[in-house]
Write a protein that binds this DNA or RNA. Structure first.
Lengths: 124, 124
DNA sequence: CGGTATCCATAGGGATACTG
DNA sequence: CAGTATCCCTATGGATACCG
């Protein structure tokens, strides 16, 4: 029955939700990419991403660490320095990101190709 | 240099952002799935998704329509009835969703398996 | 039925200052 | 340097009532 199907589908949706929670939001991917690129330190990452505040960066880094996409190490010395690095696990995301990328490209084509017939399409 | 690379990466991120905007959020996929399942009418969709308010559904349907994932048709008669249907374009999302699904499954394994050790983060 | 309009609560984000 | 703490503010969402 329809209801049952819907229940099945929406529970099958849970892992999808998980993934979206992990990489969704305004900053997560930007930060991850910054770290992939080799930025290691808090300020360094912060500077590499315009408009990103320390509070948000701090929170996002914790999330990324909790999801084992990055590691955090505190180095000896003064002033304190920390080092963030991507994990192997984080690299499994690249395929997903590629898929999202491809669909996004294709979606734009779709939206714009149809523009000739319908002017008033407010898009994305 | 690093800055340039980051610019390149983040601009390559735009299509990814587009995709996340299209399917992200709390309700978009639930609504799309409901429609994929054959629910066509406003109330019908609303009832199929617990906790979804009319205001939000209304907005989300507009977004989905703007992104050409669904079509909206107003049927003759009284009271008014509308009919929402999935587009062909919407079906191209299924592959993306599958990818998100698979990663989500895998991610859970990763998170739960790794309690003991910190390194060895190899996953698929 | 298929929505808008309205009011209100809340979470989250920006800016800034501050601590170890 | 690496963050917390604080204040503030707006965007979103729930609940409800109402209109064509």
């Amino acid at each position: 029955m329809k209801k049952k199907e819907h229940k099945e589908c929406t529970s099958a949706l849970l892992p999808v939700r998980d993934t979206l929670d992990v990489i969704g939001g305004k900053w997560k991917l930007l930060i991850l990419i910054s770290i992939w690129e080799g930025n290691k330190h808090f300020r360094e990452i912060e500077r590499s991403i315009p408009k990103l505040s320390t509070k948000v960066l701090s929170k996002e880094l914790k999330d990324l660490e909790a999801n084992q996409l990055i590691t955090r190490a505190v180095l000896n010395g003064f002033p304190v320095r920390t080092e963030y690095k991507p994990t192997q696990h984080s690299k499994t995301l690249k395929k997903v990101i590629l898929e999202l990328h491809n669909w996004g490209i294709n979606h734009r084509k779709q939206i714009f190709s149809d523009k000739s017939e319908k002017d008033n399409l407010s898009v994305v």
